[in-house]
Design a protein around this nucleic acid. Sequence first.
DNA 1: ATAAATGCAAAATCTTTGCAGAGAC
DNA 2: GTCTCTGCAAAGATTTTGCATTTAT
Lengths: 171, 171
Amino acid sequence: MDTRPTSRRQDQSAKAPPAKTSRAEPSRIERLCIERGLKMTGQRRLIARVLSDAEDHPDVEELYRRALALDNKVSVATVYRTVRLLEEKGILDRRDFGGGRARYEPTEHGQHHHLIDVETGRVIEFVDEAFERLAQAIAARLGFSMVQFRLEIFGQRDAEESNPAPPEAPR
Amino acid sequence: MDTRPTSRRQDQSAKAPPAKTSRAEPSRIERLCIERGLKMTGQRRLIARVLSDAEDHPDVEELYRRALALDNKVSVATVYRTVRLLEEKGILDRRDFGGGRARYEPTEHGQHHHLIDVETGRVIEFVDEAFERLAQAIAARLGFSMVQFRLEIFGQRDAEESNPAPPEAPR
DNA sequence: ATAAATGCAAAATCTTTGCAGAGAC
DNA sequence: GTCTCTGCAAAGATTTTGCATTTAT
């Protein structure tokens, strides 16, 4: 019989960036929401703050956990509904790094891509302009205009290194 | 309220390549299984044939449907177990093109990538050596050895075109 | 003969949704 | 005041699994 780990649940204990509890001014994401005319409820403001503060690629459950930690007034269903809404509005990007759960990050950040450490699951972002040009050229060659592209490199940390940064989401 | 399509089920009516019903010789995938010492049951042989014949990126349910069409002796659970096994053995690659279901294709084919038509969901494969070199260089720069990488370009068909190829899996 | 594979149905996960009450504008 | 949002629990969708039985080697 198969011998994979039984549960798809993963250790999500990792870094939840220190909550900037400056409740006063609107978070960056909140401003974007307002720009697009979204009705700003307490829950949306809360989720917007969590997203604005996040420097990683949290999944819905992790967002929910962080939101609860800030202010215990939100349900998972609302988190799901909100990330979907924000994705539709172009404020969030949904990612799939192979863990079975969708993970989110604010749009923009410029075009960047991901290197996933196959051992720890940690995700490193990087930028490379050459890729974008190349991708655009290929799309054109095939008769398409590039709308978006994603590049994910799965790699193994080189031996000599000594940079035990904590994993973002171990597989 | 949200206005997304209710069901995640998708039209999967598209091309099921003409079944090479030459039951005699083992399919290509079956040979690979044997090479790796897998026990060859009727079901595995069947699934191996479906995979060998496939020229697209079917999901489990589609594989199941095609398998049933050839020979009505397999269950979905076995298809799931088999694709997982073959993925672990490096015979299949699992893909995610954003439809919520994993899709599979035989490994090898050489390093190739995908351009997804955002309107129809059709997937076009392409190769480009420059990408591989670039990806390798980037991994090295970050202190990693590249194990694998995936590149997906989402594009919109240019207007002037007139190539109404049928979608592989419309979103 | 033995260890592994299958089928079935139940369970696990992740995500969406219907509905009644609460809240933003 | 109206129209949207939220919470809850239930339903959906996809994938995994326990167990008794069958099967490949």
